[in-house]
Nucleic acid binder design. Sequence first.
DNA 1: TGAAAGTACGTACCGCCGGTATGTCACCTG
DNA 2: CAGGTGACATACCGGCGGTACGTACTTTCA
Lengths: 209, 209
Amino acid sequence: MPVRTRRQRYSDSTKRALVDVAEQLFTTHGYSATSLDAIVAGADVTKGALYHHFSGKQAVFEAAFERVESRASSGIARATEGHDDPWEKAQAGLRAFLEAVQEPAYRQVVISDGPSVLGHERFREQEERSTYAIVDEIVRSALGTDAYDLDDAMLDTFTRIFFGAMSAAGGAVAVSQDPAAAAARVELAIGTIMAGLRQLLDSGATSRR
Amino acid sequence: MPVRTRRQRYSDSTKRALVDVAEQLFTTHGYSATSLDAIVAGADVTKGALYHHFSGKQAVFEAAFERVESRASSGIARATEGHDDPWEKAQAGLRAFLEAVQEPAYRQVVISDGPSVLGHERFREQEERSTYAIVDEIVRSALGTDAYDLDDAMLDTFTRIFFGAMSAAGGAVAVSQDPAAAAARVELAIGTIMAGLRQLLDSGATSRR
DNA sequence: TGAAAGTACGTACCGCCGGTATGTCACCTG
DNA sequence: CAGGTGACATACCGGCGGTACGTACTTTCA
């Protein structure tokens, strides 16, 4: 067990306070409109403390980014637990995804500022070990059977497509004036797509062997 | 016919030079890493000229943004012309979309910096009168028949989903080390999805009446 | 036709903000 | 208890977006 000295505990708490304030300010005002002075003022420290814990503004953003994404992905992972049928699992995951993507922090920090601040490739890396990984796992459990002979690259492609579809749909749900109805429509639409895909793949698999 | 005085022509040319340089710098270095000084230096004018034509940095970006998106959407529109069958039209549009989204300017200016600089809602507005509108038109021509009784909101939902899927897939194609193969996989995957959807909707439509 | 008005810039400057260099003080270690 | 180290605070710099103001050329109109 790690022995935490009093100094380390202080250090941890200020770092957490910094990320707390940063996440909130980044969410409400966006990355560029959030100044380091505002962050350190909100955490009741000075820039010296911030630059002791982080290498710069971007590093603070990354910390907040990871927290927001981690919250979202754990929420989705929780929703997909306990489903045996992969298609049911996919439905549950979709529902949780639509929920998570409506959170303001996720919308602003991950979707809006994420790509431009982190850059394309870093954004992708972060994405691929959180929510994207879950979608990939669901897609593979649903489409990765031997019956449909889809290779790895094709499964990746399907994951990309479904992930993009779900993200865009989630964004539409979030800005809708009736999010519940919009979410229901998205579930129906994607459900229809999945059902059509399943039916087509099943018929192809049976006819082929 | 508009009478262009000599002053207006000068004015137009400097404005165009400004947007030209801005588009190039925004594409190569991104929005925040591009300074107004660099833009005006590249266009051989001063900040006074820039602020005479634009209200600020964001306005310059918007002008470049609109040009990039306009190029992309006109390219897609051209590719979809001359197709009678809506499903063939969709395939042609998808192919052109995957082409357009690989352009560096589109990737950086529209996809990466667009949402954060313009903000969610302005970005959506811009999007909806260019490439999104084309996708919407294709989706409606394919799914908007009376045989499938999908209301307006559902058609919108399907457009969102397909647009998101195509955007994400296009991004994946662009970063792939073998874009041609990746594009082929995307076309196959989305083609499969569309085929499954068509089959399902057709059977539902015939069984219902 | 010449003076007034407007347009298309150029010049000089300000304030904010990210980043850095340096100082300080508490705490741990030998 | 002396030295080192970690956890900050303070002061300052350079760059960048934006503004205020000046200027030369052009169009307009009495």
